[in-house]
C-alpha cells in the first residue's frame, strides 16, 4: 500500500541525549497506525519531527511521496500529549483562530466548527471561556480543533489520557468514523493495550530505536507460540495435570470463569489441536479452549528481551 508517511533514517539528538537513532517507518495511507513504546522512547520527538516542530539531525520524511514541507501542515492534524487551550479566550473564538492557522477561511471554519460543536453536544459552549469548562468539555474542544480542517493524516499522542470513560468512547467512535472516511490515523501511546484493538499496523519504539513494525496480524502470527489455554472441570485436578504433563509442556494460568477448574496453558509444539482436544476430553469436562494470542505488550517485552 502507498505510504502517506515515509520516515527514512531519522536521527535526533539533544546534546548528549539521543532521542531517535536511525528510525525508519512507513505509515500506509488510510490505515490506523499504533506507535507504541514506553515513556521516553522517542515517540514524541518523532511526532514533533513529522509536525515540523523540530528538525531531524539526519534523515528525511516523505509526506505523500514529497519531502515534508510547510504546506503539509494543512494536511496534518496533531493532538499533542501536552495539550491545552487559551484560558482567557472564548471557546469558539480560539477554535476559529486555530482553524485559521491550519489554513481555513474564517467563514468556512465557523461553519465546520459549529457542525462539530453540535455533533459533540457542546454547541452552547461557543461563547464560554475555557476556564469555565470542565476538563472533559475542554478535551472535546481540543479534539474538534485537531480534526476540523479535515486533514489526511491525524496524529493523536496519548489520546485517551485524561478522558473519562464515556468521553473516551465518544472520541474513539469519532476517530473510527474519520478513519472509515479515509483519513490515516496515528495513535501514539505507552499504554499499548489501550489502542491495540484499534490498530491495523503498529511500530514498536524502544530506547530511540524502532525495533519492530508491520501489520499487527502478521506480527501476532509471527509471535504465536502454538500455545492454548485450557479450562478443565475434573474430580481430580492434580491427577489430570500430571497426565497432561506427560505429553505436553504446561504452565498454571488464570482467567475468569464460574467454576473452580484446572486452568492451564499448554504448549502444543508440533502437535495439533484435535489430538489435544480428544486427549483432554477424556479427563473431564472442557470449559475453556482458546489459542493464546500474544498482546502488543507481550510482543514488545519479548522483542526487547531478544534484542
Amino acid at each position: 500500500m502507498n505510504p502517506i508517511l515515509d520516515i527514512k533514517n531519522i536521527s535526533k539528538s539533544y546534546g548528549e541525549h539521543q532521542a531517535l537513532n536511525n528510525v525508519s517507518l512507513q505509515v500506509p495511507e488510510g490505515s490506523v497506525f499504533g506507535l507504541l513504546g514506553p515513556n521516553g522512547a522517542g515517540k514524541t520527538s518523532l511526532l514533533r519531527i513529522v509536525n515540523q516542530i523540530i528538525l531531524p539531525d539526519t534523515g528525511e520524511v516523505l509526506f505523500d511521496n514529497q519531502p515534508l514541507k510547510k504546506l503539509h501542515i494543512q494536511d496534518i492534524g496533531y493532538m499533542p500529549e501536552e495539550r491545552g487551550l487559551y484560558k482567557s479566550m472564548k471557546v469558539g473564538e480560539q477554535a476559529v483562530y486555530l482553524a485559521q492557522l491550519k489554513g481555513m477561511e474564517k467563514s468556512v471554519a465557523i461553519e465546520k466548527l459549529k457542525f462539530w460543536f453540535k455533533k459533540l453536544g457542546i454547541a452552547e459552549w461557543w461563547d464560554k471561556k475555557i476556564q469555565e469548562l470542565s476538563k472533559g468539555m475542554a478535551q472535546k474542544v481540543q479534539f474538534i480543533v485537531t480534526v476540523v480542517h479535515e486533514p489526511k493524516l491525524l496524529i493523536f499522542d496519548e489520546p485517551f489520557s485524561g478522558f473519562d470513560p464515556i468521553n473516551a468512547q465518544v472520541i474513539r467512535d469519532e476517530i473510527l468514523e474519520l478513519s472509515n472516511k479515509g483519513a490515516t490515523i496515528i495513535f501514539s501511546t505507552h499504554r499499548m493495550e489501550s489502542v491495540e484493538e484499534l490498530c491495523e499496523y503498529i511500530a514498536l519504539i524502544n530506547k530511540s530505536r524502532c525495533i519492530l513494525q508491520g501489520k499487527l496480524i502478521d506480527i501476532k502470527r509471527n509471535f504465536r507460540t502454538n500455545t492454548f489455554r485450557l479450562g478443565l472441570l475434573t474430580d481430580n485436578p492434580s491427577h489430570a495435570k500430571e497426565i497432561i504433563e506427560q505429553s505436553y509442556t504446561t504452565t498454571i494460568t488464570d482467567f475468569k470463569s464460574i467454576d473452580e477448574e484446572l486452568k492451564l496453558e499448554i504448549q502444543l509444539g508440533e502437535g495439533n489441536t484435535n489430538e489435544l482436544l480428544s486427549f483432554v476430553s477424556q479427563l473431564g469436562r472442557i470449559t475453556h479452549f482458546e489459542e493464546v494470542i500474544p498482546s502488543a505488550s507481550d510482543i514488545f517485552i519479548q522483542t526487547v528481551k531478544n534484542n
Binding site: 510547510k70 495539550r83 491545552g84 487551550l85 486555530l98 492557522l101
Partner: peptide, 16 residues
C-alpha cells in the same frame, strides 16, 4: 501563559 496552558505545542504545529 502559552507554555503553562500547554497550548504552545498545538500552536507550533501550525505556526513556526
Amino acid at each position: 501563559e502559552e507554555k503553562s496552558s500547554r497550548i504552545i505545542e498545538v500552536i507550533v504545529s501550525s505556526v513556526s
